[in-house]
Nucleic acid binder design. Structure first.
Length: 197
DNA sequence: ACAGCGATTGACT
DNA sequence: GTCAATCGCTGTA
């Protein structure tokens, strides 16, 4: 696998969830499907923790759905919601500590034609500017739930060759009714692929 | 067994 | 701006 040494290692993920969330911005999310490499730059994320975070799936303890949030950092946690959409998270923290980062938006870098086909639209700015949109664009379903992101194979995240300067904005998380006071949504300032709300 | 609902989206007024 | 779609997960019985 080319560029495998730039794949983020386990030690990146097994840290504090808020730190991992902020540092995921401007990294490249890579989805390999056959010979195709669908790539997007992460521009918007949200952190979810455990018993201190009423908005988190992990707030009330382990269930069959959220068990990956309690496992070791660096795995994909994919869930299905509103009867329509999949959301992609990466797990964080060490084994036994709940945490995950929701990938809310990416800026398409490579494989845009496939993303347009998967989304059924040609409008570039509608391809990946939302958690349910980007999973459809890069073909993430529960098939990918539990994947190890440190392998550099089907799904992974890598450092960019030259990371441009950017400003990080902290804001309220979207679509939740509790825990809104925590500013655990982070996005790249002025990036046009950040979801609206 | 089953009612309630959601870390969203797209269509419509 | 408002609201319906749609179904798997969760809590309760």
């Amino acid at each position: 696998m080319a560029c495998s040494k730039s794949v983020l290692p386990r030690s990146f993920y097994t840290r504090d969830t808020l730190t991992v969330a902020r540092e995921l911005l401007a990294k490249h999310l890579v989805r390999c499907v056959g010979d195709a490499e669908l790539v997007g730059m992460i521009v918007e994320v949200e952190a979810y923790r455990g018993s201190d975070d009423p908005a988190s799936h992990a707030y009330k303890g382990v269930t069959p759905r959220n068990r990956l949030m309690f496992g070791e950092g660096g795995f994909a946690y994919v869930y299905f919601t509103y009867g329509k959409h999949h959301c992609l998270n990466v797990t964080t923290e060490k084994q036994g500590v709940a945490g995950a980062v929701l990938i809310r938006a990416i800026e398409p870098i490579n494989g845009m034609e496939t993303m347009q086909k998967n989304r059924g639209t040609k409008r570039v700015h509608d391809l990946t500017n939302g958690p349910g949109k980007l999973t459809e664009a890069i073909d993430i379903t529960k098939q990918q739930n539990g994947l190890d992101l440190t392998k550099g194979e089907e799904l992974f995240i890598r450092k960019t060759q030259v990371e441009k300067d950017f400003e990080t904005v902290s804001a309220q998380r979207a679509g939740i009714r509790v825990g809104v006071e925590k500013l655990w949504r982070f996005y790249v300032k002025n990036n046009s692929f950040v979801s609206r709300r």
